[in-house]
Each structure stands twice: as C-alpha cells, then as structure tokens.
Nucleic acid binder design. Structure first.
Lengths: 243, 243
DNA sequence: TCAAGTATACTTGTATACAAGTATTATAAA
DNA sequence: TTTATAATACTTGTATACAAGTATACTTGA
C-alpha cells in the first residue's frame, strides 16, 4: 500500500522532529479527524509499513497516544478511541478546571508582563486571520492559553497541560481549518473573546474570565460530526488506507 | 558495578510486569526516596548496565518518568528533578482540584455502591494496620482515592489521575513505611479521616469532604527531608551506585 | 457435522547494531 | 601558556533480529 499521501499535521512544525514524533503527530491528527475511525485496531507492524519506518518509532507513538487517551493499548493491537462529543466536553472540563486554578494564582501576582505577552499573541492571531492562515492561527491560539498557564510556574499543572495540549492542538487545528473555509465570520468573535480574557487578567475579574472561557468554548465547540464531514471534503483525493 | 541489591518497589506488585515496568517503578522509587539525588544525570547506557537489561526498557522508563515530571529529558542525559516540598504541595493542589471536581459529580449521582466499596477498602486498610503491612496499607490508600475517581467515569480526569498516580503511590509508600516504624499512632487518625471522607460522600457534604481532604493532606505530608533521612536508615546496608 | 488438538501467522517485549550528532579530551601550533 | 584542530568517547534515534506468548485457521478423529 504505502502510497505517497498528504499529511494532516503541518510539516513545518516538524522541522527537527524525529520519526517517532512525526508518526505521533500525524497519527493523532488522523485519529482526531476521524480518518482513522474509532474502534479500528492498529498494528505496530502494519503502521511501520504504512509510515515506512521501523517498529521503534511506532511503539513510541502508540505509547504517547495511549497516555493521551485517544487509543487504548491491549494485549493484541491498539484500539482507537478517538474524540467523541463526550470527550471534547471532558477536555474542556479539564481546561476550565486548570485555567480557573491558574487564574486564582494570577490574581495574586503582577500580571503586567503576561498581559503584554498575550496582547502580542493576539496581534499575531489577527494577522493569521488576515492572511487566512488556519494553522498559524491555531498555533497562536494554543500558545495564548499555554502562556497563561506557564505564568504561574506550577509544574504539576503544567504536566496536565502538556498531556492535554497535543490533543487540543489537533482538535483546534482541524476545527479552525474548517471554519476558515466555511465560517470566516466566526473569527471576529473569537478575537473579541480573547480580548475579554486579557481584560479579565488585567482587571483580575474572575467572573469575566469564566464568561470569556465559556463563550470561547461554545464558539470553538464544533460537533465531531461536522469535523469529520469537513475532513472528508478536504481529503477527498487521498487514498484510504485499507490493507 | 551492578551488585545484587534490595529493591524499593514491592516486588509482588510486579509479578507479571515487563522489564520496562520494573525499571520504571524502581527508578521512580529511588528518585522519590532521594536515593538518586535531584540534579543527577542519568545515562541510558549506564542504567542498562546497572539494571542488567538492554536500552529498550530503559528508554521506555525514562520517557514515562519524564511525563511524570520527576526527570527532564535533555539533549544529553536525563536530569533528575525528584520531589521537593514544593512539588509535593503541587501534587496535592492537583489532587484537591480533581477530587473536588469529582465530588461535584458525585453529588448528582447515586453513591450507594461507591460507599459500600470504599467501606470495604477501609476495612482492608485497618487489617493492614493491624499486621503492620505498610505496603498493603499504601496500596489500599491509593485504591481508595482511585475508586472515588473511577466512579464518575470521566476519561480525562482519569487521565490526570493515571499520570499522577505512580508518583503519589511511591510517595505514600515511602511515607507509610516510615510512619509504621516511627509514628504508628498516626494511623488511627488516618483511618478517621477516611471515615469522614466516606461520610462526606454519603451525606453529599462538600465542606466535610474538603475538610477531611485537607486533614488527610496535613497528615500525610511528610517533609521530604524526613523521608530521605528515614530512607537512609532503611537502606544503610545498600551499596551506593556511583560509577 | 462437530470437537479437540495442532500448525501457522500474528502479537509484544527485549536485545543488539549502527548511523549521525555532540561533548570531551588530547594533540599540535602559536 | 594559550588556542585551534583533531581524535575519542559518549549521546540519541532508528532498524533489525529474536524469543515467548496468543489468536486464527486448519486439520484429524469421532
């Protein structure tokens, strides 16, 4: 099989990445996009052939994806879990949980530097919108929230984020690509929400932060079905990998 | 080097474990106990010799320990982070965060089955105390909290727990071993706290839960220094692994 | 036709080899 | 003695080989 095919994950984000990381990122995208359906059983050997690498990087990828909860390692083969609407809600539960926690810490800190940093990132997001660069926009969006979390310097909150981030990133990437094509008008609202978020940090207004977080969630929340439909459209020329 | 030595991690918990898992568990214990000091640089090759296995299981172990935030993978060698008092507080921050979240869900559920299960575990803990079995007690203590978290069926909260659990387990194990030797009287208080916790779940009393959680924390919180001192005592006959 | 056992084709986990890159040390030139 | 260059001893990431175990398919006997 192993034909040349497009990759879902932005190749320029992988400039210095190892084969293991490449496989991890790409496999994650294919799972979250629904291209590899939930319930599919992945074989190390088959994946090694498909990606034209040895089993070592594949094993590494499967271990990571299992720790991210999008596949389940069983005695024979890895079973794809993927993201259903339930999981997406759960991810946002956790994000709200940690971002609320972080906010409580921020309230007791000097946030001037952070606010400046976030404003810069928001400017970048606006530029990305102007040039219809969905990938760059997603990158900055994730970075925005990561920057907030980094600010409080809490290694175990950061650990949670690091576990959640790749799945978030993939989901946002797919979601934004779709919306750049179909719902361009959404982005003025997204920008406004991020402005609110910055404002909340500046004024240390907890309620405002929760409000903007929830609006952002309602906004970003694309139903998984839509995502999958859209994905199908984007990749219609692509060879399906049935063995 | 590689002399025969005692292992810190209970060998009976590893009955069917792979070499990778054994190394992971044992290395974690040595790091958390302070036997391998923070700042130490671990080499894959050296570890492979010390544990008398190949690099494959060692690599696996280092990846896992890095995701648990007790080592940091750098370009050359893995740097030990370990647990300082700060990290232990952070872990309890996260535990309080997720257990509070879980409690909110429990309040809207039928908790009869859970309460029964927890009572059973508590009985087991009492037996472990009676026979001065620190390892068994630790196992049941961790299981107690894990059971609560499992009850709400939230895959991403569970993901966080799964990331935190091994470090928690190791820390509790070391802490309890010390207290069984030195502070036996503590255990009546620990049991009482767990009874309060069950009561809080039964009556769905949020404040009681927070109260018992905090008391449990204050109780379990052993200063890292004490842990290390105690560890030195327990392993005085053991050969240090200087290369 | 069906049950029990056997062969085969998978699986995982581990060991080992090697290429490419990076520190460290040794050596030679100033 | 100091500095530049070369040799070496390490590092990581990947490929490959193999042992042990497990599911699937294929007999063979009733």
């Amino acid at each position: 099989m192993a034909e040349s095919r497009e990759f879902l994950y932005p190749s320029k984000w992988l400039s210095k990445a190892s084969a293991g990381n490449r496989v991890t990122s790409e496999l994650r995208m294919r799972i979250i996009s629904g291209e590899i359906e939930s319930g599919t059983i992945l074989s190390e050997n088959k994946l090694a052939v498909d990606f034209a690498v040895s089993r070592s990087p594949i094993r590494e990828a499967l271990k990571i994806l299992a720790s991210e909860n999008i596949i389940r390692l069983e005695r024979m083969g890895a079973v794809v879990i993927g993201l259903s609407d339930k999981e997406i809600e759960e991810i946002y539960d956790v994000r709200l949980l940690i971002e609320s926690f972080v906010f409580e810490r921020l309230v007791r800190m000097d946030t001037n530097e952070l606010v400046k940093e976030l404003s810069k990132i928001l400017e970048m997001m606006k530029v990305a919108i102007k040039y219809s660069d969905a990938d760059e926009f997603s990158y900055q969006d994730v970075l925005f929230h990561e920057t907030i979390i980094h600010a409080v310097n809490h290694s175990y909150i950061l650990m949670i984020w690091n576990n959640l981030k790749p799945v978030m990133e993939s989901f946002i990437l797919l979601s934004m690509r779709m919306r750049f094509k179909e719902k361009y008008e959404d982005f003025t609202r997204i920008v406004k929400n991020h402005e609110l978020y910055i404002e909340a940090i500046k004024t240390k207004d907890r309620d405002l932060m929760i409000k903007s977080f929830h609006e952002n969630f309602d906004d970003v929340q694309v139903k998984v079905e839509d995502l999958w439909m859209s994905q199908q459209m984007l990749s219609k020329g692509v060879v399906q990998q049935n063995d």
